[in-house]
Design a protein around this nucleic acid. Structure first.
Lengths: 113, 113
DNA sequence: CGTCGATATCGATGGGTGTCGATGCGGTGA
DNA sequence: TCACCGCATCGACACCCATCGATATCGACG
């Protein structure tokens, strides 16, 4: 189609802002996907509200009602997304939320990104 | 196990706040899952930045590089999640972001939910 | 040094989802 | 009236993911 004509059709939108790049969109989607699970939300909520120095895996398994490998899996997802961090001590693993990780995400959403 | 003993084991956490309910976690996860896709993020960003009165589907198909049925699918997901709304006019469909939808989500994340 | 307990990883499995082409449904204009 | 156009839905396909049991790893402890 003739481009000069294409711009004059009935259905067009001005496009005032530059389109979001593939990389930014993918990065944002990756973090959101890590959060988009009920069990991971519960985990993060518990980490954020209950532990200044971390929560060990064994204290997450029972209240979540899922098996221990599943809990480890979810914690790994959150950790790879940069939302929680792990502190190993003896044979225990204490997880705690990364300060500001959710704040950055919240501000991104708030600014209409 | 004896509860009086369970509280005294090595691996315990105080649990200062009530656990997040299944319903809240599922609802939050549903909204986040609707956002957890690069194409949907691009769509929402474009809707938020380019259109006071809505963007029609045909203007989203080409810049996203995906077929029209896929665009309709993503718009449907966003609409069912309460993030965008549709205004039909003639044979066109104009989509626009729901005001405050992202703000509420951002505040939920910011308050550590 | 052997056992046990806490976590992580592996392999399998069932369900969910993004993508597409084909098709249906209204509304427009010739 | 009829062809065309924009959009939604359908059916199929491939792929990802949450979950589990089984197993490996690693440190503590007797």
């Amino acid at each position: 189609m003739d481009p000069a004509v294409a711009g004059a059709l009935a259905c067009r939108t001005p496009l005032t802002a530059p389109a979001l790049g593939d990389a930014e969109a993918a990065a944002l989607a990756a973090v959101l996907k890590a959060l988009a699970d009920p069990n991971r939300i519960k985990i993060l909520h518990r980490l954020a509200s209950a532990a200044p120095d971390g929560v060990c895996v064994c204290d997450l398994t029972e209240p979540l009602g899922i098996a221990q490998p599943s809990v480890s899996h979810h914690l790994g997802v959150l950790r790879r997304a940069g939302l929680v961090e792990r502190r190993r001590e003896a044979s225990f693993a204490y997880y705690s939320p990364v300060p500001g990780a959710l704040d950055r995400l919240a501000s991104l959403l708030g600014t209409g990104a």
